[in-house]
């Protein structure tokens, strides 16, 4: 899948989660997503960026502009070197949470995006890649 442009953003704090939302919004606008789609993508970015900070102990987000023939998309990749996820299937379930949250971060953001993949091993961090196509 040809990536025509990409940008990294470190995720260490609450403020970085806000920056992730703002940068994702800017990219979604530039790619011509509708207002509802922009809102969905930004919301997913916010959930996943918060997970990276809270559960992954910080990491980074990479935004990528995808050009695949007539299709254009925005890919968001979240990488951390945190404790990882032992049971991904369980973590993807609505309402499952190891923290004090609602457990909607992973399952909810998967619903908001077109594609969603997660790879993680205990002790080796987590990588989440998600795409919204136009």
């Amino acid at each position: 899948m040809p990536v025509t442009r990409s940008q990294d953003l470190p995720l260490r704090s609450d403020e970085d989660v806000v920056r992730a939302r703002q940068l994702t919004r800017q990219w979604a606008i530039e790619l011509g997503f509708s207002l509802v789609d922009q809102t969905k993508i930004v919301t997913a970015a916010s959930e996943l960026a918060r997970n990276t900070v809270l559960h992954g102990g910080g990491g980074q987000m990479t935004l990528e502009h995808l050009d695949e023939g007539p299709r254009r998309g925005l890919r968001l990749v979240f990488v951390d070197q945190g404790p990882g996820i032992a049971d991904i299937e369980q973590a993807m379930r609505d309402g499952f949470s190891t923290g004090s949250g609602l457990g909607l971060g992973l399952s909810g953001s998967r619903r908001l995006m077109s594609e969603f993949s997660i790879s993680s091993r205990p002790g080796q961090g987590t990588r989440i890649s998600t795409v919204r196509w136009r």
Binding site: V36, Q38, K40, E47, L102, L104, L112
Partner: peptide
């Protein structure tokens, strides 16, 4: 609440 926010919240599961 903006309509796009309402649509997204419900889809998110809230």
């Amino acid at each position: 609440m903006r309509p796009a926010v309402a649509i997204t919240l419900v889809e998110l599961g809230l």
